[in-house]
Design a protein around this nucleic acid. Sequence first.
DNA 1: ATGTCGTGGACGCCACGA
Length: 263
Amino acid sequence: MRLATWNVNSLPARMPRVLEWLDRTQPDVVCLQETKITDAAFPHAALEELGYASVAAGDGRYNGVAIASRIGIEDVRRGFAGEPGFPGLEKRAIAATCAGLRVWSVYIPNGRSPDSPAFEYKLAWLDALRPAAGEEVAAHSALAVCGDFNVAPSDEDVWDPQAFTGSTHVTPQERAAVKQLLALGLTDVHPRALKGAPYTYWDYRAGMFHKGEGMRIDLVLLSDALAANVRDAYIDRDARKGTKPSDHAPVVVEVELPPQDGS
DNA sequence: ATGTCGTGGACGCCACGA
């Protein structure tokens, strides 16, 4: 099966690119983040025309996550137990089961700067995600936790570690939080490097995309057993090019699912 | 270059988040 994750930075603004990308890429399941659209306005019908059923959790202006699947979508859960807010609960997590694969689409808070309340919120959010993810690891042998983690797991995942001194996304606390997630029994699937770099995000400003100044912050975490069945993983860098792109590129993973129980 | 996007309020720019 082909699984993808993409921070689209507004689904309304990105619909032409998203539909074109789905048609070209043919993922079975895609996790979306920063949809920036209310549930009432979510374009279920346009996705259905391409064969995708979709579920969403969104408030409108900020955040928002969704999952689209052409192989079935059931047991939907929005948010998770103990999820903190800032100050109120935000729309940052949705889960569903697609043909036996438990899939989460998550959008971890940005954190703004290490000395801000938003950073404490980011760490608290990751702390709360851990037990919820642990329950999912225990309950589902085939599990994928996908999304924009707003953390570059290692120095290899940023274009210049020196440039990030004093910044979020690279701090020991954030990296420790991701490591603790992996310790639950999840594998960070490393996509093939493109042009020598594994980046999934490039700031719109200052021509950073064209200078190759990016970060790998969009991750696909697979349950360890499932990760052993990965056939390919890549970043669709072309999706960052052209007219009105998102500032993130999709990550695409080809993985062989084990036979489903009872099928 | 603190250099670009996207949203929404209130209407041609500004505040905010990323």
